[in-house]
Design a protein around this nucleic acid. Structure first.
Length: 418
RNA sequence: GUGGGUGUAGCUCAGUGGUAGAGCACUGGAUUGUGGCUCCGGGUGUCGCGGGUUCAAUUCCCGUCACUCACCCCA
């Protein structure tokens, strides 16, 4: 077949959709419990939005964005993540004038042109939340606690919560000097990426998986020991609050994340269970206190995270698909098929989910089909039933059959269905 | 971007240098208008694509594309 879905982009067919609904419904419900309200943003944004927020030297901006020129000369990009759009919308609509603290959530597709792998797609779905206007650290703890509770409510129990702090501008400047001082003698031993990172964003050297780089990074000074007092206090209070909430976590000094906009609090939840493959980061997030201002808005602290829905789905225990048919109508003879259509309308008007085989066929084949569809009830209509104003109501699970009047049929069916 | 694996029926896969099979699924039937179990029957494939070797290729070789897994990075 020559026309296929684009590489890394998947169809979600009806057999899978109930699991998606279960996940999305659960997320919306959980977000509402914490006072978050849903927002939806365009999938296409000006390219500059992502370059300026995510950072020019990140992998996303350097090589993963779907960028194109529209029929003018504007450079547009399919959003690779949701936070930048949230911030843009927050600024554009002057939301800070409406309320001191804004709590939004979103669900939708994101686009990154990476090599696909298990748990990594070019179009993938994220659900995320953003809080604007609260400097923390209590809100940091609440956000982390919320999402950890959410994941566990999905039946995903094998997880690890990592947190770190990379401080604010002052800490970053101090630490950058200290780190570069440490790394400089090793410069020639580092991989080429890291040599470049040293100039662009030295923090990311700590994250490198190349063996020699991680050896060198292991002995690097820790950013945690360079936190200025205010950053230190923020991180301590976050930990204290998480502990009080009973949220398990591990401080991971090397947690850096590949987006430039983060400040202070960073966190990530890793799935440890089977079925995830190598892409086991279920969600990632952190504080981005500088971004609103740097994109032209008022100086507004913010924190948020994004979860990968496909990964959550892979980690979730599967449940049998719910049946989607209550009553299957069987026409015993071709002569009553019109009347069967009317019966179907009557039952649907009463709120029952009704299926039938409009193509006709033998009684046996129609009943087989009812069974395949896991219908609980079959209603058989033949010439004599039509004549007498009744139907044969068959409980396919209990294997019982009664003759009931047309007028009673919907009520009897509902009684059986509970 | 780099490596590995795999491409045969709708799905999962077997198979052979002489143009192909199973299970599942789908479908018809097993006495008059009754499902699931059982039994009997039915159809489908450019054997990913292109080239090479050969009397002959789905089978061997090369290339290519697709899918997939890992690295990288991330959700």
């Amino acid at each position: 077949m020559s026309l296929r879905a684009v590489k890394g982009m998947k169809d979600i067919l009806p057999d899978e959709i109930s699991k998606w609904h279960r996940l999305e419904d659960a997320f919306r419900a959980r977000a509402a419990l914490y006072g978050f309200r849903e927002a939806r943003f365009p999938i296409v944004e000006p390219t500059a939005l992502f370059v300026r927020s995510i950072g020019e030297n990140t992998d996303i901006v350097e090589k993963e964005m779907y960028t194109f020129t529209d029929r003018g000369d504007k450079s547009l990009t399919l959003r690779p993540e949701g936070t930048a759009s949230s911030v843009r919308a927050y600024i554009q609509h002057n939301v800070q004038a409406l309320e001191p603290v804004t709590k939004w959530f979103y669900v939708g597709p994101m686009y990154r042109r990476e090599r696909p792998a298990k748990g990594r797609y070019r179009q993938f779905y994220q659900a995320g939340i953003e809080v604007f206007g609260d400097p923390g650290p209590y809100v940091d703890a609440e956000v982390i606690d919320m999402v950890v509770g959410f994941i566990s409510s999905l039946g995903i129990t094998q997880v690890e919560v990592l947190i770190n702090s990379i401080g604010g501008p002052e800490t970053r400047a101090n630490y950058r000097d200290a780190l570069l001082g440490y790394l400089e003698p090793y410069r020639s031993e580092l991989c080429s990426d890291c040599q470049r990172r040293m100039d662009a964003n030295p923090l990311r050297v700590l994250d490198c998986k190349v063996p020699r780089c991680s050896e060198i990074a292991a002995d690097a000074p820790s950013i945690l020991s360079h936190l200025v007092d205010a950053d230190r206090a923020h991180f301590d209070t976050l930990q204290k609050t998480l502990t009080l909430l009973g949220t398990p976590y591990r401080v991971e000094g090397s947690l850096v994340r590949g987006l430039d906009y983060y400040t202070r609090t960073l966190f990530e939840v890793l799935g440890k269970g089977e079925g995830l493959g190598a892409q086991n980061a279920l969600l990632g997030g952190g504080r981005y206190d500088q971004m609103v201002k740097s994109l032209g808005g008022p100086d507004t602290p913010a924190i948020g995270f994004a979860m990968g829905l496909e990964r959550l789905l892979m980690a979730m225990p599967s449940e049998p698909d719910p049946t989607h048919v209550d009553v299957f109508i069987v026409a015993a003879q071709a002569s009553v098929r019109s009347e069967a259509a009317l019966l179907g309308r009557e039952l649907r008007d009463a709120g029952l989910r009704v299926e039938s085989d409009l193509r006709g066929g033998s009684l046996k084949s129609q009943l087989r089909r009812a069974d395949k569809m896991s219908a609980r009830i079959a209603m058989i209509l033949g010439e004599s039933e039509v004549e007498n104003g009744v139907v044969q109501l068959k409980d396919l699970e209990q294997k019982t059959q009664d003759e009931v009047s047309r007028a009673e049929a919907a009520k009897r069916a509902k009684a059986i269905l509970g």
